[in-house]
Computed example of a mutant assay.
Amino acid sequence: MEGVVHMEFLEQGQTVNSERYISTLRALRLRRVRRDKDSFLQHDNARPHTGRHTQDALRQLELTTLPHPAYSPDLAPSGYYLFPQLKKYLKGHHFDSDEEVIADVGRGCHGQSSEFFADGVCQLVKRWRLCIDHDSDYVEK
C-alpha cells in the first residue's frame, strides 16, 4: 500500500509468457521490502498467471496470491486506479526515446504518496465486495 515495489518494461515486440512472468516473480520476491505474512500478490487470470509452472513457482517462492474471479477485469488496481492517473500525468508529454518514457513513468509512479496507493487498495476492497455480492458477475460500466 505504500508504493510501487517492482517495475519493469518489456522490449518492443516481447510478450509476457509463463517463463517471463516467473522471472518477474523471482525479481519481485528478491526485491520485496516486507516479507511478512500480510503481503499478497494480486494478478488476474491471464494464462501466464494461472499455468502449472507459474503456480509451482508461486508455491516455491512462498508468494500468497489473492484469488481473482473469472471475467472481472476491473479488480486490478493498476487498471482502475494507477494507469488512469499515470495517463493524466503523461498527457501532453512528448518523448524522443523509450528511455525517456521509462524515466517519466518512474517519476509518475514514485512521485505518488503512500496515501494514493492506500486509496487504491481501499477501492479494491469495495470492488471485491461488489463482485462477490454479484456472484462474480460484476464489471464496472
Score class of each variant (00 low, 15 high):
Asp74Thr: 11
Thr54Cys: 10
Asp56Tyr: 08
His49Asn: 15
Phe40Leu: 14
Lys141Ser: 13
Phe9Pro: 00
Lys141Tyr: 02
Asp56Asn: 11
Lys126Gly: 05
Asp38Glu: 12
His110Gln: 13
Leu130Asp: 00
Thr65Phe: 03
Leu66Asp: 07
Gln60Asn: 12
His94Ile: 15
Phe40Met: 09
His53Pro: 06
Asp133Val: 04
Leu124Pro: 00
Ala76Tyr: 02
Arg127Ser: 03
Gln42Leu: 15
Ile102Val: 13
Gln123Asp: 08
Leu66Arg: 07
Cys122Phe: 08
His94Asp: 11
Ser113His: 09
Arg107Asp: 10
Val33Phe: 05
Arg107Ser: 05
Asp133Ser: 05
Gly13Gln: 07
Val4Asp: 00
Pro48Asn: 08
Leu124His: 09
Asp104Glu: 14
Leu66Met: 07
Ile132Thr: 05
Val125Lys: 07
Pro48Met: 12
Tyr71Asp: 07
Arg107Trp: 01
Phe116Arg: 02
Glu62Met: 15
Glu115Cys: 10
Gly120Trp: 00
Leu124Trp: 12
Asp36Ser: 14
Arg127Tyr: 06
Tyr81Val: 02
Thr65Ala: 14
Val16Gln: 12
Asp74Leu: 02
Val125Gly: 03
Pro84Gly: 02
Ala118Val: 08
Asp135Glu: 10
Val105Asn: 04
Ser136Leu: 02
Thr50Glu: 05
Gly13Ala: 09
Arg20Gly: 04
Asp36Trp: 08
Tyr21Gln: 03
Val101Tyr: 00
Arg52Thr: 11
Ser39Thr: 12
Val33Cys: 12
Thr50Lys: 13
His93Ala: 13
Thr15Leu: 12
Ser113Glu: 06
Pro48Glu: 12
Val139Ala: 09
Arg127Ile: 00
Gly13Phe: 11
Gly13Ser: 08
Pro67Val: 06
Pro69Thr: 09
Pro67Asp: 09
Asp36Arg: 10
Pro67Arg: 14
Arg59Glu: 15
Arg26Lys: 13
Asn17Pro: 10
Asp74Ile: 02
Glu62Cys: 13
Trp128Ser: 00
Lys91Gly: 07
Ala118Ile: 05
Val33Ile: 15
Glu100Asp: 11
Lys37Asn: 14
Asp44Tyr: 06
Gly3Ile: 01
Ser72Glu: 00
Thr50Pro: 01
Arg127Ala: 05
Gly111Phe: 05
His49Lys: 10
Leu86Gln: 02
Asp74Ser: 03
Lys87Phe: 00
Arg26Leu: 06
Val33Asn: 06
Arg107Phe: 06
Lys87Tyr: 01
Tyr89Ser: 01
Leu10Trp: 08
Pro48Ser: 09
Leu61Met: 12
Ser72Pro: 01
Arg31Gln: 14
Gly51Ala: 15
Gly111Asn: 06
Tyr138Ala: 04
Ser23Arg: 03
Leu86Gly: 01
Arg31Ser: 13
Leu130Tyr: 06
Asp36Glu: 11
Cys122Pro: 00
Arg20Pro: 02
Arg20Asn: 03
Ala57Lys: 03
Gln123Met: 05
Asp104Phe: 02
Gly3Pro: 00
Ala118Cys: 05
Met7Glu: 06
Met1Val: 05
Glu2Ile: 03
Lys37Ile: 09
His6Leu: 12
Ala103Pro: 00
Asp36Phe: 06
Ser97Thr: 13
Arg35Ala: 10
Val121Gln: 13
Asp96Asn: 13
Cys122Asn: 10
Glu99His: 07
